[in-house]
């Protein structure tokens, strides 16, 4: 085989890779820019802290209520899921037999693959109707907690796995029990990384729409939910309803604005998580 031929093959392969990869990298970037370009006219401080009364179909002032609802749901979901996730991960590392460990891993890998809308359906059947909690903050939070649970468990497991074995053994050599090892060795060492996991879970909860559509949200009319059992409005569903129901360009620009805020929120959680992770590494 002659060398010109070989060089030509390399060039062609590289060419194909560039040809396929450049759109793959550029289109997402362009799309992201497009969102912010569309959102620019409405994005200002008043948009974020203003509230809408609902009568104007989202056209009026701002998205404060939606923002609040989204954050409230995400925080509650993590607050519900975190203790279970931590408990499960610690059980895995301390008491679980190898058989149980395999079973748990399989369970959570499966759970992670379940589409979020399926959790939404379950929430609708069990929480909203069977438990008669209604379309409410608490139903939505529990459903979202199920969505983020596998993420949190797998993250916590990965964190605990990074603790050097010798570190734990040194503790055991001192005669520390499981409680002391967890409380005095593991948690102080890895709490930053655990927090990273929680932030990522929050970002995930913030970006889910389908599971809360039937279980927690109404289109408008709520600013601050009166109780755990009243419905909320969220940014995600707000964008969805505006996109679906309206043809008014002004309304759609509100949707773009909300989308930009949501993207920024999720991205900043991601960046924060990354920073914390780096901090925890050192």
């Amino acid at each position: 085989m002659n060398s010109q031929h070989l060089l030509a093959r390399d060039t062609i392969s590289k060419g194909i890779v560039w040809l396929l990869a450049v759109p793959a990298l550029l289109i997402p970037t362009i799309v992201l820019c497009y969102i912010f370009w569309q959102a620019a006219p409405v994005l200002d401080w008043g948009f974020i802290v203003g509230t809408t009364d609902g009568a104007g179909f989202g056209v009026s002032d701002g998205i404060f209520a939606q923002l609040l609802g989204s954050l409230l749901l995400a925080v509650m979901a993590c607050a519900i899921a975190a203790p279970f996730a931590l408990g499960t991960a610690l059980y895995y590392r301390t008491y679980a037999s190898p058989r149980q460990q395999r079973l748990l891993t399989a369970m959570f890998n499966m759970l992670q693959g379940i589409p979020p809308i399926v959790f939404g359906l379950c929430g609708l059947v069990v929480l909203v109707n069977l438990f008669a909690w209604g379309v409410s903050l608490i139903s939505g939070a529990v459903v979202l907690a199920m969505v983020v649970l596998p993420l949190l468990v797998l993250n916590t497991l990965a964190t605990l796995e990074r603790i050097p074995h010798g570190y734990t053994e040194a503790g055991m050599a001192l005669g520390l029990g499981n409680g002391a090892i967890i409380g005095r060795l593991w948690l102080p060492r890895s709490w930053l990384n655990l927090l990273t996991g929680v932030l990522l879970a929050m970002a995930r909860a913030l970006s889910e729409t389908a599971p809360i559509m039937f279980t927690a949200t109404v289109f408008s009319g709520v600013v601050w939910p009166d109780s755990l059992f009243s419905p909320v409005t969220t940014l995600q569903t707000h964008i969805f309803y505006l996109a679906q129901e309206s043809n008014d360009p002004q309304v759609i620009s509100i949707a773009w604005g909300s989308a930009a805020v949501l993207v920024l929120l999720v991205a900043s959680l991601g960046v924060l998580a990354r920073l914390l992770y780096k901090l925890g590494e050192d």
């Binding site: 002659n2 060398s3 010109q4 070989l6 060089l7 390399d10």
Partner: peptide, 10 residues
Amino acid sequence: SRQWRGGWDR
């Protein structure tokens, strides 16, 4: 070797 016909791989 810098001017090798077919380049470094060759």
